[in-house]
């Protein structure tokens, strides 16, 4: 069973000491031509220059300097395609950590990464598993699904799982082929653990509206809605905020995200011990 030890949101401002992302516009111009998406190879890039390598190294330094496994989850591309994230981290971290990345599941990519983390943990691949979910805002093309993103900052959320973590993951579920029609019943089932608990909280991702969650919970639990300005990290930073809040009794916290374009509904349920003065699993 995965046990959460720490979860923390790391915002990254513009790092103008770093060079801009050389070559990225050219790469995307080539790649997007086949999709009929215009991208100017000579366009000046606007972004914050925080690559997945840099963000992951920073998160590791803060949460777990000696992980056995680092799993990077991202919904969109990196701003630096010239650096191997695996190599970069392997060079900087002690031991011989396994580093890999999971992507291409949109807003629910973090849940896919956790599914992989659970498989690695349960099959003995490591006792300290660090999941780094990352959103960076350097895009060389326009896409309707990227509108409304926070372009001023990049974001990462680190989740550290260790054998002695105080917050057990009681459920991790990824459902595919959930369309708008089947969402209400699927969401009600996903929220059930929070609804039936004495002290339940639902942390809902941006794919779910207040009306969706109200219908699913019948107003019986507290609901915290994530920001809508990030692709895959928002629900996890909302979870970090929730777990950092003082609580005098044990809570059942369920994080849930819906990816409408791909039809994924994903759920993570945690049993969170009391933390009277400060969050038990912030870091």
């Amino acid at each position: 069973m995965l046990r959460l030890t720490a979860v923390r949101h790391f915002p990254f401002d513009l790092d103008d000491a770093r060079p801009s992302c050389h070559g990225l516009a050219e790469v995307f111009a080539e790649r997007l031509a086949g999709d009929g998406v215009p991208a100017d190879p000579a366009a000046a890039l606007v972004g914050n220059r925080n690559s997945f390598s840099l963000m992951s190294a920073h998160v590791a330094a803060q949460l777990c300097p000696d992980p056995d496994v680092v799993l990077v989850g991202h919904a969109a591309h990196d701003c630096d395609l010239s650096t191997s994230v695996a190599g970069y981290l392997q060079q900087r971290l002690p031991g011989d950590p396994l580093v890999l990345a999971v992507s291409e599941q949109g807003a629910t990519t973090g849940f896919a990464a956790l599914t992989m983390a659970r498989a690695l943990h349960d099959t003995g691949a490591g006792r300290r598993i660090l999941v780094v979910l990352a959103d960076q805002a350097t895009f060389t093309y326009d896409d309707p699904r990227l509108s409304g993103l926070d372009r001023r900052r990049d974001h990462a959320v680190g989740l550290l799982f260790t054998d002695d973590g105080g917050t057990p993951v009681t459920e991790l579920r990824v459902l595919a082929q959930v369309d708008r029609q089947s969402l209400p019943s699927a969401l009600a089932a996903a929220a059930k653990e929070a609804v039936s608990a004495p002290h339940g909280v639902l942390v809902a991702g941006a794919g779910l509206s207040p009306a969706d969650t109200a219908a699913a919970t019948g107003g019986q639990v507290a609901v915290r809605h994530a920001a809508a300005d990030r692709l895959t990290t928002a629900v996890w930073s909302a979870l970090a905020d929730e777990l950092a809040a003082p609580a005098t009794c044990e809570r059942t916290v369920v994080a849930v995200e819906y990816e409408p374009d791909l039809g994924y509904l994903s759920t993570l349920a945690l049993t969170v011990p009391p933390a009277p003065t400060s969050g038990a699993v912030r870091d």
Binding site: V27, F28, R31, L32, G34, D35, V37, H74, A75, A76, H77, D78, L81, A101, S103, E104, G106, F139, Y141, D143, P144, R145, L146, L231, D261, L262
Partner: peptide, 9 residues
């Protein structure tokens, strides 16, 4: 890593 348009999937 994936480098197509985000919507293309």
């Amino acid at each position: 890593e994936p480098t197509g348009a985000y919507s293309s999937q």
